[in-house]
Design a binder for these strands. Sequence first.
DNA 1: TCTGGTTTCTATAGACCTATAGACTCCGCG
DNA 2: CGCGGAGTCTATAGGTCTATAGAAACCAGA
Lengths: 197, 197
Amino acid sequence: MNAPSRSRYDEQKAEAVKAAAAEFASKGYHGASTKDIAARLGVQQGSLYYYFRSKEDALLEVCLYGIRDYVQRMERIAADGQPFEAKLFATVTSHLSSYRSTNEALKVYNDERLYLPPEKRRNLKELGSAYREHLEGIFDQAIADGVVRADVDSHFAAQTVIGICNAWGDHIVREPDLDLFDLTRKCTDLLLHGFAR
Amino acid sequence: MNAPSRSRYDEQKAEAVKAAAAEFASKGYHGASTKDIAARLGVQQGSLYYYFRSKEDALLEVCLYGIRDYVQRMERIAADGQPFEAKLFATVTSHLSSYRSTNEALKVYNDERLYLPPEKRRNLKELGSAYREHLEGIFDQAIADGVVRADVDSHFAAQTVIGICNAWGDHIVREPDLDLFDLTRKCTDLLLHGFAR
DNA sequence: TCTGGTTTCTATAGACCTATAGACTCCGCG
DNA sequence: CGCGGAGTCTATAGGTCTATAGAAACCAGA
C-alpha cells in the first residue's frame, strides 16, 4: 500500500500489533502469552520488547488500532448529509465490516480493554464516547426530524445499536463465511421496524 | 432457604462456585487466580481443591450454574399459553434479571466458556442450543400466527434477542442501579416495533 | 473421652510468564 | 573493507501460578 513512506520499523510494528490482536482475540489478554504472540509473528519472545514496552502497552496499541479508523468513519457518517435510514445502514455496515477488516482488533477493544489500568484507558474512553455520542446525535436529529419516534431514548438506542453490532461481531469473527450484507440488512430492518407485523 | 436438606459440603461448594463466578466475571478466567478465588471465599488457596478437581472444572461449574435455571425458565415460557408479546417480554425479563440474581455466573458463561476444552463444553453447548431453539420456536409460532412478519428470519431473531440481552447484561453487571423494568420495556419495544416512526 | 470422617491448612514441586541484559547478525554507506 | 545502527537472538532473574501431599483442626457419635 503506502510501503515506500513507512519505515521498516513501522511495518514490522504493524505486523506485531496484528499478531497481538489475533492472539488476544482468540485467547484473551491474560490467556495469550508474549511467547504466543512472538511465535505468530515468527520471532523469539524477547524480541517483542523491541516494539512494545510491555504486554500491557501491546494491548493498548491493539485497542487503539481497533477503534481509531472506526471512530473516524462514524464522524464522516454523522457529518454527511444523508437521511437517517442511510446513516443507520452505513453505521451498521461500518461496524460489522470492521470485524473483518481490522483483524479482530475491534473485538479486542470490546472484550479486553477493561484489563487496562485507568490511566492507559483514558484515550480509549474518549474515542469510545465520541463514537456513542455521534450515534446519539444521529438519533436526536432523527427524532427532531420526525423520522424516529419521539418516545425513543437516544442513549438507549445508541447503546443498543452498538450492542447488536458487537454481539454479531462475535459470530462474524468465528464464522468467516457469514454474509455481511444480508446481516446488515436484517439488523437495520430490525432497528427501524422491529419484528412485529 | 433449603438449608436443612443440603449437606455442609453442598453449601460450602455453592459458596465456592459463587466466589469463582465473581472472580471470573471481574478478571476473566485466565486473569483470576485460584488464590484470588480462595481469598474471596476466605480460605487458603490449596483448600479450593477440596471442592474442585481443577480451575477448569471450577469454570465449568460456574458456567453450568449460570445457564441452568435460565434454560428452565425459557422452557416454561415457551410452553405457557401466553401470546407472543408476553412471551417476548418474559424472555427479556428473565434474561436481564439473571444478571442480577445469579451473581455474574451468566456473564461468565457468555464470556469465558470458550476457554473450556471441547469435551467439557459439550453439556454447555446443549443447554445453550436448547435455549436458542426454544426462542426460535417462539418466533416460528408467531410468524405462523401472523403476529410477526413472514420475512423475519427466526434464527437471526433469536440470536439477536440473546445478543441484545447479553450486551445490556454487561452494563447491568457494571451499573447496579440500572432500572431493569424500564430497560426491559425499551428492549421489547425495539424488538417489536423498531425505532422508526 | 476416644475415634473416624470431614474439612482446612501449610509447604512445596514444577511449570510458565514477563521483562531485561548483552551478544550477535545484517545491511547501507563512506 | 570497516563502521555504526537497526533489529533479532539467547539466557536468565524473579515472580506467579496450579496442583498435590501430608499434617492439623474440627466435629459427631459411641
